[in-house]
Design a protein around this nucleic acid. Structure first.
Length: 705
DNA sequence: AGGAACGTATGC
DNA sequence: GCATACGTTCCT
C-alpha cells in the first residue's frame, strides 16, 4: 500500500449521526448519519503504549488525572481509523465482505463510506454506474460516492469521518489546517478530482546525481572566510520556519526591522483561489448555526483545571508547523493510481469506460506512489552530491511551491505485511523467470532518479525498488523544499545516511524524521537553521555517527550546550541520562561561532570523536587545540582528523599540541594565517621518530601510510 | 478560535 | 458491564 497519503481534501466535518451523543443540529444534512470510526488496532500508533506524558494521558485516571477529557493518548491516535464492525451497507444491509475475496476483487464488496452523504455501501450495491466515485486514499473505506460525485456535491464543508488527528504523531504530519476564510465560489469547487496541476513527473525529474564522494572545502581565496550568511537570505527562509519564537532568539538583532521580501506571488494567490479548501467555510455548516445561543444555565461542568502551559505549547507548535507544512504541500484528493507512479488524476469509475482497469486496485496493494517520484527529487534541485559545501555560498533559501489553502495530510501507513514478491507476475498469470534478487542486483546499479522511474513501472518493481538496500544514502542537499511526501518517502526507505544540507527543513519535520529513523548513522544538516537542528535536542538518535551542522546559523555555545546536554527530564527510569550524541565519530562544525566552551562539552560528551571539522571557526585558537589534546581527554586519543583550515587564531603553537595526539593522521591548517610552513615542516621532522607525516598541500599535514 | 468537557458508541 | 475514546457542545 502506498505510504503516501496525501489528500485531506474531503474529510467531511463530523456530523451528527443517529448515534450521536448530542442533539442534531437543525441543519443536519438530509443524507445518512455518520458512523463513528474506531481504531484500526494495527497501525504504529495503535500498537504503541500510552506515553503517559501527553495532555490526554495526564487526564486519564490511570495516570492520576480526573478522566474528564476522555481522549486517546496523542501518540496513540490511530492513523487509519476504520468503520466499526457494526457498520453495514445501506443497500443490502450486510457488512463488508472483503475478507472473502482476493485482493483485487475486494473493492466492490467492501464497505465504503461517503464523506459527503455519509452513506455506507458496497460499491457493487450501487445502481449508479455512470458516475465516478472518488476514493479517499487517506482513510480506509472512505470515498465520495458516485451519487454525490455525479450530483456535483462536494465535501468542502465536511471533514472525513473518523479522523481526529493528533497531528503531531505518529502517523500524520499535518494537522487540519485552520478554516480558511474563503469567500464566494472558491468554496464551491470540489478538489476531489482535480488533477494536480502541473504535476507532471517530467517536471520533477531530478538532476543527474553526482556520486557521493566527499570533497574538502574549497579553499580558494574567493571562498575564504565569509561573513555569516546574509540576513536577507535568512529572512526568506524565515517565512518557512515554524518555530518562530525560538528562531528569534538566535537571530541577530536588527533583522526584524528589515522588510520581508514579498514571496507571495500572483501564482500563489491564484492558486489559493482555485483550490477549494476542505476546510473552506467549515463554519458554514454547523458552526455558524446560531443554535442555542444566548445564556444557558450551566451547572453541570466542574471547574476546569487548565493545563495551559503544556497544551498550549504543544498545540501551538503543532499548529504552526503544520500550517507551514500545509502551505508547502497541497494536492487535491486523488485516487491511487493503477501503477504505482501513475498520475492520480482520475476519479475512478465503476464499471465505466476506463477500459479494463480495475479501479479498486488503486486502493490496494500499492507500495509506491506517483507522488513519490515527483516529490522525492523535485525539479530545480541541483544536488551537489557531497557534504562539504563551500561555505561561502549559502544558497538562497528554498521557496515553497505556490501556496494553496488546500491542505493535505500524510499518513504513513505501516509497511506492507507481506514480503515483496520473489518474481514478477506477468499478464498471462505466470511469473517472470528472473528472481527478485537478480533484479535487485540490477537495480543496485541505478541512480536514485532511475530507481524512481523504475518504480513507475509496476507494483512489483515499485516494491523492489523501494528496498532500503538501494537507498542507504539519501541526498536531498539543497533540495529547495522538504515536503511531507518526501519525509514519508524517506521513512519508507530507512536510509542510513541522510543529507538535508541547505534545505529548509523545519524543526518539526526533522524531529518527525529522526524519531522514525532509528538506524540513522549519518545526518548532514549543514546550512540548515538552528531552529531546525534543535530538533536533535529532543530526539534521540543513538546510532548517529556523523553529524554535520556546519554553517548552521545561530548555532553557538548555548545551542551546542542544548545539543549535547542529556535530556532534562531525568526522572529515574524514565530516560536515558547520557548524551544524545555520545556515539558521534565525525562532527562537522565549520563556520560556527563556537568557543572553547563548546569544545569542553564535546570533549566530555563525545568520547569516540574521531574526526572534527572546525574550519572557519573564528573563535578557535591555540588554547582550543590545547584543550582537545590535553592529558585526560578522550579526544586526545580518539582524534584522527582535524580540520582547522581558515581558523585565523590558530598559530604554530597548536602544532606542538598535536604531537600529543596518539592517533592523529590528518591536520588541516590551510589558510591559517598564523601557521607557517616552517612550523609544519618542523612538526613533520619531529614526528618522524614515530610517525611519518607529509605535507599533502600547503599546511595540510597527512600521515603517510 | 482553541481547548475542555462529556454523552455515548464501540469493542471486549 | 466496563474501558476506551470519538465527535459534538460548551466555555474561556
Amino acid at each position: 500500500l502506498s505510504l503516501f497519503y496525501s489528500n485531506e481534501a474531503n474529510r467531511p466535518k463530523p456530523k451528527m449521526g443517529t448515534s450521536a451523543a448530542v442533539k442534531l443540529p437543525s441543519n443536519r444534512s438530509a443524507s445518512g448519519a455518520r458512523r463513528r470510526r474506531t481504531r484500526c488496532r494495527k497501525c504504529e500508533a495503535c500498537l504503541r503504549t500510552e506515553c503517559g506524558e501527553c495532555h490526554f494521558c495526564k487526564d486519564m485516571k490511570k495516570f492520576g488525572g480526573p478522566g474528564r477529557m476522555k481522549q486517546s493518548c496523542i501518540m496513540r491516535q490511530c492513523i487509519a481509523p476504520v468503520l466499526p464492525h457494526t457498520a453495514v451497507c445501506v443497500v443490502c444491509g450486510e457488512a463488508g465482505k472483503e475478507d472473502t475475496l482476493e485482493e483485487e476483487d475486494k473493492f466492490n464488496v467492501m464497505l465504503m463510506e461517503c464523506s459527503i452523504c455519509n452513506e455506507i455501501v458496497h460499491p457493487n450495491c450501487l445502481k449508479v454506474k455512470d458516475a465516478s466515485g472518488v476514493v479517499n486514499d487517506e482513510l480506509p473505506n472512505c470515498w465520495e460516492c458516485p451519487k454525490c460525485n455525479y450530483a456535483g456535491k462536494t465535501g468542502k464543508q465536511k471533514r472525513g469521518p473518523g479522523f481526529k488527528y493528533a497531528s503531531n504523531l505518529p502517523g500524520s504530519l499535518l494537522k487540519e489546517q485552520k478554516a480558511v476564510k474563503e469567500e464566494g465560489e472558491a468554496t464551491s469547487t470540489s478538489t476531489a478530482k482535480r488533477k494536480p496541476e502541473g504535476d507532471d513527473i517530467s517536471r520533477h525529474r531530478p538532476e543527474e546525481r553526482e556520486p557521493l564522494h566527499r570533497h574538502p572545502p574549497v579553499l580558494t581565496p574567493s571562498t575564504l572566510p565569509r561573513p555569516r550568511p546574509e540576513d536577507k537570505l535568512r529572512k526568506k527562509r524565515k517565512l518557512f520556519d515554524d518555530d518562530e519564537e525560538e528562531d528569534f532568539s538566535v537571530r541577530k538583532k536588527g533583522k526584524a526591522d528589515e522588510p520581508l521580501p514579498p514571496l507571495k506571488t500572483p501564482v500563489l494567490d491564484s492558486d489559493q483561489s482555485h483550490c477549494s479548501s476542505p476546510q473552506a467555510g467549515p463554519s458554514s455548516e454547523g458552526g455558524s448555526e446560531p443554535q442555542e445561543k444566548g445564556p444557558r444555565p450551566k451547572a453541570r461542568r466542574k471547574r476546569r483545571l487548565p493545563n495551559k502551559e503544556l497544551s498550549k505549547a504543544l498545540n501551538q507548535e503543532i499548529q504552526k508547523t503544520e500550517d507551514c507544512l500545509a502551505n508547502e504541500n497541497r494536492q487535491p484528493l486523488k485516487v491511487e493510481p493503477e501503477s504505482e507512479n501513475e498520475e492520480p488524476k482520475r476519479g475512478f469509475r465503476i464499471g465505466s469506460d476506463l477500459g479494463g482497469e480495475r479501479p479498486h486496485l488503486r486502493t490496494k496493494e500499492m507500495n509506491g506512489t506517483p507522488w513519490e517520484l515527483r516529490h522525492f527529487y523535485p525539479s530545480q534541485i541541483t544536488p551537489l552530491g557531497f557534504n562539504r559545501s563551500s561555505p561561502g555560498t549559502r544558497p538562497l533559501p528554498p521557496r515553497s511551491p505556490p501556496k494553496c489553502v488546500q491542505m493535505e495530510r500524510h499518513v504513513i501507513r505501516p509497511p506492507p505485511i507481506s514480503p515483496p514478491p520473489d518474481r514478477l507476475p506477468l499478464v498471462d498469470g505466470k511469473t517472470h523467470a528472473v528472481q527478485r534478487e537478480v533484479w535487485m542486483k540490477l537495480f543496485g546499479h541505478f541512480t536514485h532518479k532511475e530507481l524512481c522511474v523504475c518504480m513507475r513501472v509496476c507494483k512489483t518493481w515499485n516494491r523492489w525498488c523501494c528496498d532500503k538496500r538501494l537507498w542507504t544514502n539519501i541526498d536531498l542537499n539543497r533540495c529547495k523544499s522538504i515536503t511531507p511526501l518526501m519525509l514519508s518517502g524517506i521513512i519508507r526507505r530507512q536510509p542510513l545516511s541522510l543529507d538535508l544540507s541547505w534545505t529548509n527543513i523545519s524543526k518539526k519535520q526533522l524531529s518527525w524524521l529522526i524519531n522514525r529513523l532509528p538506524g540513522l548513522r549519518v545526518l548532514l544538516l549543514s546550512g540548515c537553521s538552528w531552529v531546525a537542528v534543535s530538533a536533535l535536542c529532543t530526539s534521540s538518535c543513538p546510532l548517529l555517527r556523523t553529524l554535520d551542522v556546519q554553517w548552521v546559523e545561530g548555532l553557538k555555545d548555548a545551542q551546542m550546550r542544548d545539543l549535547l546536554s542529556p535530556p532534562t527530564d531525568n526522572r529515574p527510569g524514565q530516560l536515558d541520562n547520557r548524551c544524545k550524541l555520545r556515539n558521534i565519530l565525525d562532527l562537522r562544525l565549520a563556520g560556527l561561532d563556537i568557543t572553547d566552551a563548546s569544545l569542553r562539552l564535546i570533549i566530555r560528551h563525545m568520547p569516540l570523536l574521531s574526526r572534527l571539522d572546525l574550519s572557519y571557526c573564528n573563535h578557535i585558537n591555540d588554547h582550543s587545540v590545547n584543550l582537545l589534546t590535553a592529558a585526560g581527554t578522550t579526544t586526545r586519543d580518539s582524534l584522527t582528523e582535524i580540520n582547522l583550515s581558515v581558523c585565523n587564531r590558530v598559530t604554530d603553537h597548536s602544532l606542538t599540541f598535536f604531537k600529543r595526539c596518539g592517533s592523529i593522521c590528518h591536520i588541516d591548517l590551510r589558510y591559517c594565517k598564523q601557521v607557517t610552513k616552517m612550523a609544519c615542516e618542523q612538526f613533520i621532522a619531529e614526528m618522524s621518530v614515530s610517525v611519518q607525516f607529509g605535507l599533502k598541500e600547503d599546511k595540510l599535514l597527512q600521515k603517510l601510510s
